[in-house]
Design a protein around this nucleic acid. Structure first.
Length: 454
RNA sequence: CGGAGUGUAGCGCAGUCUGGUAGCGCACCUCGUUCGGGACGAGGGGGUCGUAGGUUCGAAUCCUAUCACUCCGACCA
């Protein structure tokens, strides 16, 4: 079982004291399964078109996703900061994007009649921060990132948090002296992304992509395959078996990073916009994978597109000023929460991978008020919490059926069911959410198993 | 932004055509019986009928305006 490193700071949680507004019926507006289940499980609540409140259960998932994203960004040498959501229009006039961006940008006016905007991305601002302080090539390379709410005023938001107007995004920005350095930075992020998605329990494939309004000439989308995916994608089957770069890989070794890039871009992979039917048809038939995909990350190299007009320059070894080469690297944690459900669910609810489960263990006391059941449940709850496991303890005075349904909807990967029948023989039942597999174990054995000791 | 819809209790809906003072299921509260896959009975609480104007003795219902939300398409992390 994965270590407790991704555990949230939290108090022991009893469902009777929690805020988990689950719905028995499906709200009619929810078309896709992730949206439906997130509403039913009480993870999110829509407050406006494309704008959602994250309720406690959803927030836990979001925080766990962010923790993994953060760990892998840090491992790759990126440094976290936090930029504001609101930005000055003047900054965007410098890059020329204030007029280019169109109606997707939410424009606001403050009390002094100054134009401000709710940031859809942060290239301008990070460039401004960089140029204010960095003067020398010796301070390079640099990669700064933050995890912050963004807003894009989509014409038609839909699919819940999969395509919302407000969304959480990790965006990293790299600064290098030249193109070779920028390529290395790009390769580091590819490696970090492969590791990030793997840890989230997803198989993500980098695919050639259009650069969109951000511009540039090197860009990949990271796509996960899911039958309910929004777009059509085509790739070589071997990608599905490729090994993820290990934790120990040296991010400062350009050759190692280039090798990762070369391997993961060696075979055919493209979204429908970039699809080359002839190239795809040239693959052996059994190697062709044509599927639906969900974009969960997008990376760009765009050279001096912002640094030149915004004068983000450094002195090189030769004493001359040069505009830095930049790239940007996005992952959408809020969208990932939905994508994870699209990739992991059944009729009863989400089936979270251990790494992002809001609670790793769901503890069900089938007979609240029965001294033996209460005692065994409390013992298990305390022991697992002490072992660093997130446990949701259903101590409500409800009927068994309602408890089973609720816990399946929460999606805890491991369930412990404490009922009078099995407890009479000193046993509790362990259920694996994904497979439905059940096993009877003694109380202490169950604690050891789920606490990671056995 | 084009096209199509919907706004009535927390959720799902009926009532609107044909105007007469608001109803059903789930959820919620109380009591009882239940209790290993979303129980049953009895009782109860909760609604400015999206909003504003108009017509009328009387408007959820008819008229006008407006707002919000949803779906299809184009667009997009």
């Amino acid at each position: 079982m994965r270590s407790a490193s991704n555990r949230l700071q939290s108090q022991p949680m009893r469902l009777s004291r929690y805020f988990l507004p689950i719905l028995k019926e499906t709200p009619k507006e929810a078309e896709i399964v992730s949206h439906r289940l997130m509403l039913r499980a009480g993870m999110i609540r829509q407050e406006s078109a494309g704008i959602y409140a994250w309720l406690p259960l959803g927030l836990r998932v979001l925080q766990k996703i962010c923790a993994i994203v953060r760990e892998e960004q840090n491992r790759a040498g990126a440094i976290e900061l936090l930029m504001p959501t609101l930005q000055s229009a003047d900054l965007w006039r410098e890059s020329g994007r204030y007029d280019d961006y169109g109606k997707e940008m939410l424009r606001i006016r403050d009390r002094h009649e100054r134009d401000i905007l709710y940031g859809p991305t942060n290239e301008e601002m990070i460039t401004e921060i960089f140029r204010a302080s960095v003067r020398s090539y010796k301070d390079l390379p640099l990669n700064l990132y933050h995890i912050q709410w963004k807003f894009r005023d989509e014409v038609r938001p839909r699919f819940g948090v999969m395509r919302s107007r407000e969304f959480l995004m990790k965006d990293a920005y790299s600064f290098d002296l030249d193109q070779a350095g920028a390529r290395h930075s790009y390769n580091k992020m590819i490696t970090a992304y492969l590791r990030t998605f793997k840890r989230l329990g997803l198989t993500a494939i980098p695919m050639m992509a259009d650069t969109g309004p951000i511009g540039g000439d090197l860009s990949h989308e990271f796509i996960i395959l899911a039958s309910t995916g929004e777009s059509e994608v085509f790739c070589h089957k071997d990608y599905l078996g490729f090994e993820t770069p290990p934790e120990t890989i040296d991010f400062d070794d350009p050759a190692a990073m280039q090798a990762v890039f070369d391997k993961w871009t060696s075979l055919y992979a493209a979204t429908s916009e970039k699809h080359d039917a002839a190239a795809f048809a040239a693959l052996p038939e059994e190697a062709r994978v044509s599927a639906r995909g969900i974009e969960v990350g997008h990376i760009f190299y765009f050279g001096t597109k912002y640094s030149a007009p915004m004068k983000a320059v450094v002195n090189g070894p030769d004493g001359k000023e040069t505009a830095v080469h930049m790239g940007s690297y996005g992952i959408g944690p809020s969208r990932l929460a939905a994508a994870l459900i699209e990739a992991n669910h059944d009729e009863a609810g989400p089936i979270w991978p251990d790494a992002v489960a809001p609670f790793r263990v769901g503890l069900i006391n089938l007979k609240v008020g029965d001294a033996a059941c209460d005692g065994a449940s409390a013992r298990i709850h305390r022991a697992l919490e002490a072992a660093g496991v997130d446990v949701l303890y259903d101590d409500r005075d409800e009927r068994p059926g309602a408890k089973f349904a609720a816990m399946d909807l929460v999606g805890a990967p491991h369930q412990v069911i404490v009922g009078p029948k099995s407890l009479a023989e000193g046993k509790v039942e362990l259920k694996i959410r994904r497979s439905g597999e059940r096993e009877l174990l003694g109380v202490e054995a169950a604690i050891d198993r789920l606490g990671g000791k056995a």
